[in-house]
Design a protein around this nucleic acid. Structure first.
Lengths: 228, 228
DNA sequence: TGACAGAATATTGAATGCATAATTCAATTC
DNA sequence: GAATTGAATTATGCATTCAATATTCTGTCA
């Protein structure tokens, strides 16, 4: 600790040690989770007082959290009226998916450029797990692994900017995705698409990886839409 | 509740009538503008007290504004240390441009699908104005029209989601773009690219419009990078 | 002189209080 | 009985206050 008299490296963005994250941040995360899980329904009005009592905090950090979530597009802040969980029309959902597809396409390209071999190994391993969960018809596990793969590919791009942009939109469709149950045919297709993506990444074929990922997402949307 | 008596149309997201925008929103906009214009330099620490005095408001709405700008990625909030204008490395700038290019590509595609003829008329008119400002070497006007064209194309896509995602990233590169002065050669090329884009839109050639827009942005970045 | 410890100061985080706008609801009128 | 008005209630916007953490300053000691 004492050697080397130079200025200590001083990580500038350290997250707080333990259990001492700012209240506003904590509230933001919990509220976001509640929205994503559907505990707070679209169109529902948020009562500040009720939430402060539920969380055991004052209105100040809660209101800061609301501002953040509004910036993320998860709720609307109406002057002197309060916060309302954004409701998404079919058309808006289509918009989000279209943009998301473009971002996933880019993710495919960037991942082929920037992923190191270990990252590809992990993606392939996850893809195999995905196949296994499909074979077992284990939907919850499939869902979890599916998310993990997408996350791994995003991470493999090395682009924090892309990760963040993607995340913001992914939040908004996650609610819709929760309720959508795949048909068996679509499910099988999805697994095969994932395997093709993993292969394209391994082959470092940027165009192919990109277009496969883009199409994968659009197919996903088509499947959801079919359910109405 | 729903179909009975004539439920009044009730615009739900009307912007406030006159001069009654929330303080926090006002502050958010002014701060964002200050950051974009370089009045607040990257790496600079924000002193809450100083700003409250400058704006003549209390810390509460200011802090709410900071939360929003942090969510937008324009500044970092460090626990117990305050807000710092994000500084962008060359690498991060490259990341943003890459994502932005993908979004502009999508914008080109969607605009060919969704733009009505009047929108195309306006884009063409702006493109002619752009040429004029180039002929006159009127950089400020060129800049303004350039922005207007991009905005018009984004608007023509009809996708609010795309507009917003684009805007968020555009904010972040705007600072860098401010200082970059085009070379004459690059300037001429940019005008020609714009004319090609307008033509592709008119021809309703989605692929062409998309790839032209994507490449236009990447060229722009290459030009900025060349300046280093 | 330089490094360290501890006090003094400044700054941020969160809670409370106050003013104003919105909503509710009962009384009044047609 | 329905619609309307206005008082009472509630909720939101903002300022202020209190508490906790970080930074600066100062004096001491090696």
């Amino acid at each position: 600790m004492d050697s080397s008299g130079n200025e200590a490296p001083m990580n500038e963005l350290r997250s707080e040690p333990i259990g001492r994250t700012a209240l506003a941040v904590e509230i933001t995360n919990r509220l976001r989770q509640m929205i994503l899980e559907g505990l707070l329904q679209p169109g529902e009005k948020i009562n500040e007082k009720a939430l402060t009592e539920q969380f055991g905090v004052s209105r100040t950090p809660l209101r800061e959290a609301l501002k953040v979530l509004a910036a993320e597009g998860l709720l609307d802040l109406i002057p002197h009226r309060g916060a309302v969980i954004t409701r998404q029309s079919e058309a808006e959902l289509a918009e989000v998916f279209r943009v998301l597809a473009a971002l996933e396409g880019l993710a495919g390209e960037l991942a082929t450029e920037n992923a190191d071999d270990e990252a590809l190994d992990e993606i392939e391993a996850l893809t195999r797990d995905l196949r296994t969960s499909f074979d077992k018809s284990d939907r919850p596990t499939y869902f979890r692994i599916n998310q993990a793969i997408h996350k791994a590919i995003l991470a493999a791009t090395g682009s924090d900017t892309l990760l963040r942009s993607h995340e913001l939109l992914a939040f908004r469709v996650q609610r819709a995705r929760y309720q959508a149950n795949l048909t068996s045919a679509r499910w099988r297709a999805a697994v095969e698409e994932h395997e093709a993506i993993a292969a394209a990444l391994r082959a470092r074929d940027a165009n192919r990886a990109g277009s496969l990922m883009k199409m994968h997402l659009l197919s996903k949307f088509a499947a959801i839409r079919a359910k109405g």
